Each structure stands twice: as structure tokens, then as C-alpha cells.
Simulated scan of single mutants.
Amino acid sequence: MCAAVYVLSTVTGYVLTSALLLKCPTLLHRRKRETFLSRHISHRGGAGENLENTMAAFQHAVDLGTDMLELDCHLTKDDQVVVSHDANLRRSTGINAYISDLAYAELPPYNCKLEVTFQRECFCEGGEDKRIPLLRDVFDAFPNTPVNIDIKVNNDTLIRKVSELVAKYDREHLTVWGNSSNQVVKKCYKENPRIPVLFSLPRVLQLLGLFYTGLLPFVPLKEQFLEIPMPSIITKLLMRKALFNHLTDRGIQVYIWVLNDEEDFQRAFDLGATGVMTDFPTRLKEFMDRNGISKIQ
């Protein structure tokens, strides 16, 4: 009888402590320092309004007042860090070649018309800018705009060179990087722990497990940004306002991608997401302006 009472009191104490720390995580963890906050994030610069990952797309998004540019990086044969989503150029340029097999000067221009990946039966027809840019071009043009970098391949040289560029342009406080691969994120963090990292997919799953077992409030987290897709099976499990609020209170920003209609915009913000990533920056800006959520409070 005494043993049962002891177990019951221990479990009750654990549950109450977990619940308290879930709502007040700074009792145990120091809040992460947030050097920027992003509500409006332009996916590939806004792939629904300009050709993806071009300087024209990035300029358009920045002119609209986007809080962050999201882009993807690869390494050319001559070790130049370029901004492009695909390793192979067939989809984007019509040329069946890998970026890693070509020098930067040999890269072909983008096609005039590209499918918008996250919008069904939608294509974007671009203007005159069809050039695959260098990452340093983006840093030169937008020195004060936060950039979200997806390291597309597990390449030590790519990771090192991106880190060197971020440091050279004094952008460690304006950059987040990573990949769905836990191995890539670990390498990024090891290469330069001053650049905040994203949760990898395995770490997202671990985060879920910690949340639903009540252990999350007790566990330190090195990541500062959680990016999750919507809709998906994982997201339907993950999307709990209590989780988002807990992470936000710890200084971890929650971004939901890639959302392109107002119903999903509303749902994401209602759930407490820090920001939304979209292919249509104009559409998101108009929604946020109408609903008075353009500014971080």
C-alpha cells in the first residue's frame, strides 16, 4: 500500500512539474537569444511570382517587405556556392547535368517557365532574369535581410564554404541553416555553432516523442528553428498550440511551409506559428496586412 502511494505521488509530482515547465520553460532553460523574428518568409524567393531562386525573385520579395528569404545551395565543380534547389539541372534548365559537374561559368540559364512545386498545376513564367546566382550575390544585395539556407547535399566543402561566406559578410546573426538530414545539421553545427540550425527530420520526430511523453520541458535543445510542412501526417500529430507556445517561450521559432492559400495562412497563425513560408509573397503580405499581423509583436 505504501509503495503504491509512493509511486502515485511520484507520478503526480512528475506530471505537475512537467505541466508547469511546459508553460514556464524559462524556469529550467535560458531563453535563446533571437536576433531576428520572421513572420513572412519567401520560399525560393517566391517561386509562384518569379522564377525560383533568382535575384529577381529575391528583390521582389524584399521590396514587398518579406522578413526572410529561403533558398537552397549547391557547389559547382570550381567550388562556387550557387543558389539552386536541384542537384540536377534538367527540371530547371532542360539540361541533364549536375551542378557539381559544371564550373559556374558553364551553368545554363533557367527555363522561361517553371512548375511551382507546392502549388498544383501552377507554373511561373519569369522575366529577363534567368541566371543561377551565387550565394554571395544574395549577401551583397540584401545585407540586412535574414536568410534561411537549405544545404542540399552532404558535402563538407559546401558546408565549410557557406560558413565562410556567412562569416565574411558578418551574417551569423541573420542566418539559419540546415537540412532534413541529421548528419548535415550536425556538420553545420560543428562547422560553425554561431549560426543557428534547423531541426532535422529525425530531431523533429524526437521532439514529438519528448512532447507526448512529457519529457520535452526537461530536455535542452540546440536548435533554434523548427520548420514543418502542412498538411502532412507528421504535421497533423505535431500541430499542437501547447507545443508551439512552449518552443516560442524558449526562443525557438516555428515556421510552417509551404503555404499558398489564405485558409492555411490563418490556420498556421491560429496555431501559434512564428511565421509562414510561401511561394506567393504578395498573397501572404496582403493577408497579413488585412489581419493586422504584419509586424512581430
Rank of each mutant, 00 (worst) to 15 (best):
84 S>G: 12
111 N>P: 11
90 R>G: 11
112 C>D: 13
84 S>E: 08
90 R>S: 11
100 S>I: 08
130 K>H: 02
151 I>V: 15
108 P>R: 02
64 L>E: 09
131 R>L: 07
112 C>Y: 13
103 A>W: 09
140 D>G: 10
84 S>I: 15
88 N>Y: 01
98 Y>H: 03
132 I>A: 00
112 C>L: 13
94 G>E: 06
75 L>R: 07
65 G>D: 10
99 I>R: 06
84 S>M: 14
133 P>C: 01
148 N>C: 14
106 E>K: 01
157 T>S: 11
134 L>T: 09
81 V>N: 12
104 Y>W: 13
165 L>Y: 11
151 I>N: 09
107 L>T: 02
168 K>W: 14
128 E>W: 10
158 L>A: 09
99 I>N: 10
83 V>H: 05
73 C>I: 05
169 Y>S: 09
73 C>P: 06
118 F>H: 09
119 Q>S: 15
139 F>E: 04
98 Y>R: 00
156 D>Y: 14
75 L>Y: 10
144 N>C: 14
129 D>W: 01
137 D>K: 03
77 K>Y: 11
97 A>M: 02
138 V>A: 03
122 C>F: 08
154 N>W: 11
99 I>E: 04
147 V>A: 05
145 T>H: 11
160 R>M: 12
65 G>R: 06
108 P>T: 00
96 N>H: 13
129 D>I: 13
169 Y>H: 07
169 Y>W: 10
67 D>P: 03
79 D>E: 15
139 F>V: 05
150 D>I: 09
152 K>W: 04
161 K>L: 12
109 P>G: 02
67 D>T: 07
92 S>P: 10
123 F>S: 11
124 C>S: 15
141 A>N: 13
135 L>K: 00
113 K>M: 14
66 T>A: 14
84 S>Q: 14
119 Q>V: 15
79 D>V: 08
97 A>D: 09
117 T>Q: 09
135 L>H: 04
93 T>V: 00
73 C>H: 03
118 F>E: 14
104 Y>A: 00
165 L>F: 08
132 I>S: 00
152 K>T: 06
126 G>K: 02
172 E>H: 08
118 F>C: 11
162 V>G: 05
89 L>H: 02
82 V>F: 02
65 G>K: 12
154 N>L: 14
112 C>A: 15
118 F>Q: 12
126 G>Q: 03
88 N>C: 12
105 A>H: 06
142 F>P: 14
108 P>N: 01
147 V>C: 10
76 T>E: 01
167 A>L: 14
91 R>Y: 10
94 G>D: 06
93 T>C: 03
83 V>L: 01
86 D>T: 01
92 S>Q: 06
83 V>T: 10
104 Y>H: 04
133 P>R: 00
111 N>K: 15
163 S>D: 07
70 E>L: 10
139 F>P: 15
163 S>G: 12
68 M>T: 07
125 E>C: 13
159 I>D: 03
129 D>L: 07
121 E>N: 14
76 T>W: 05
99 I>G: 08
86 D>W: 03
111 N>Y: 09
88 N>K: 03
